[in-house]
């Protein structure tokens, strides 16, 4: 990859088209996104050391409406990254699995939707029902 051809967002993130690259991009974006959440999360849990009042006040950060919306993204990120990561691990552990990559991706997508959609549904319904 030579440097001067790096123009535009697409080439900057390394995206080159195709469903394999879409999965690659999602895997990277969700991994980095979850890592960002984790950093905030650790700071948040660290505040336990400042006592009950301080800690409980900041829990608002998890329970505010916009936070509940972000949590659906977190659920998406962790669930997708976990399933795609598992597929990668399986393919690396059993090289012959590469021959069936397309089928494995299809299984992954079905499993992902089967877990994520109901979970997201419960979260959103719970949030809408419990709001106010």
């Amino acid at each position: 990859m030579s440097q001067p051809t790096n123009v535009g967002l697409r080439s900057w993130i390394g995206y080159r088209g195709g469903s394999g690259y879409l999965l690659w991009l999602l895997h990277r974006a969700t991994g980095l996104g979850v890592l960002m959440f984790l950093a905030l999360h650790i700071v948040n849990i660290f505040l336990l050391g400042f006592g009950e009042e301080v800690f409980n006040k900041l829990l608002y950060l998890y329970q505010a409406p916009w936070a509940r919306a972000m949590e659906v993204f977190l659920l998406f990120g962790v669930t997708f990254h976990a399933m795609n990561g598992l597929r990668i691990i399986i393919q690396d552990a059993f090289p012959r699995a590469w021959l069936h990559q397309r089928r494995l991706v299809a299984v992954e997508v079905v499993l992902f939707l089967a877990v994520f959609l109901p979970a997201a549904w419960i979260m959103v319904a719970d949030f809408l029902g419990g709001a106010g």
Partner: peptide, 30 residues
């Protein structure tokens, strides 16, 4: 790959437990 398999248990369980067994609204200091 090793840590991926471990996190498949630890992180996924933690997240789903916090959300669907405890519930984010019910979490506080106690």
């Amino acid at each position: 790959r090793l840590s991926g398999v471990v996190l498949l248990g630890l992180a996924v369980f933690h997240l789903y437990w916090m959300h669907f067994a405890i519930g984010v609204d019910n979490i506080d200091f106690q």
